[in-house]
């Protein structure tokens, strides 16, 4: 089955540019703001590199606490992303493909953690899932499970702030995706779930991946909700951002060194993934 040709492939439109082929130069009104934007994003990172304590860097990086914090950060951010995928993709599908009263409100609720200051998010999680929280007290009484001050608590806190990024990205991709494939699959006898699994999911895979990367990056840098909900204990709940913040209190040089490690690792992971996708597609 060949997909219907999308309209609007630029080059050969009748009545296009007078000259036979389109100009390839970048228009100045786009180039200048783009460069300004790039400079704005890169400059603070460059400053971090310029002011980094390069001479004491090796000694900072060989301390076991740094690797402990880094490992915990990677484990927790990846787990939070996995958790977000498991519940976030179905949630995005629900928002994009079904019609129910109050959908606009639900969508607003989903994006709420983006607006909420993370520390407030952490307090909200304590009130909900803490030892004395409205749900947490039953978890404690029935299963003996307490989430605050545990690694599981870190993963939950990170999922809470990171999942909206995934849901919004996937929902946008679902809306942009052509529904006719799903409908064709269903008319050919596939159930709605099979159509989602075999047709929709492969179709929106790039969007899901982009959302997962956003969520992962957000989870990796998460500070406020984590320290409020899960506390700060080396090896158990002290992730890199927490270690950086506490180092900043009395040893700014160490804080910069730790930030550089976090940046280097995330750039390596993101660039690596990026290459894999572009090769795959």
């Amino acid at each position: 089955m060949t997909p219907p040709r999308p309209t609007g492939t630029a080059t050969v439109l009748p009545g296009g540019p007078r000259r036979g082929r389109p100009r390839t130069g970048v228009p100045l009104p786009l180039l200048l703001p783009a460069l300004a934007g790039l400079a704005f994003l890169v400059l603070p990172l460059a400053a971090l590199l310029v002011r980094a304590p390069w001479s004491s860097l090796p000694e900072q990086l060989t301390s076991p606490e740094v690797w402990q914090a880094l490992r915990l950060s990677l484990v927790c951010a990846t787990s939070a992303t996995a958790l977000s995928l498991v519940v976030g993709v179905p949630l995005a599908w629900l928002l994009a493909r079904t019609d129910f009263p109050g959908r606009g409100l639900v969508r607003a609720l989903v994006t709420l953690p983006l607006v909420l200051p993370p520390v407030v998010g952490g307090v909200a999680l304590l009130l909900a899932l803490g030892r004395n929280g409205i749900v947490g007290r039953w978890l404690d009484a029935w299963f003996g499970v307490t989430l605050p001050f545990t690694t599981a608590g870190v993963i939950l806190a990170e999922t809470f702030v990171a999942m909206p990024f995934l849901v919004i990205t996937v929902e946008g991709t679902l809306r942009a995706a052509d529904r006719r494939y799903e409908e064709a699959a269903q008319t050919l006898g596939a159930s709605r779930f099979t159509a989602f699994r075999r047709v929709t999911l492969p179709l929106i895979a790039p969007g899901v991946a982009a959302g997962a990367v956003l969520a992962w990056a957000r989870a990796l840098g998460e500070f406020g909700a984590t320290i409020t909900f899960a506390g700060n204990f080396p090896g158990r709940t002290q992730t890199m951002p927490l270690a950086v913040y506490l180092a900043l209190q009395n040893d700014p040089a160490a804080a910069i060194a730790l930030s550089l490690v976090l940046l280097a690792v995330s750039v390596a992971v993101l660039a690596g993934l990026r290459d894999r996708w572009t090769n795959a597609s």
Binding site: V123, G130, F149, N232
Partner: peptide, 20 residues
């Protein structure tokens, strides 16, 4: 051995206020 080393005194206090 505490369960957490908080980032400031209010953080520590709030963990008790919230009964965590």
């Amino acid at each position: 051995t505490p369960v957490s080393y908080e980032e400031d005194v209010k953080g520590a206090l709030n963990k008790v206020v919230l009964k965590e």
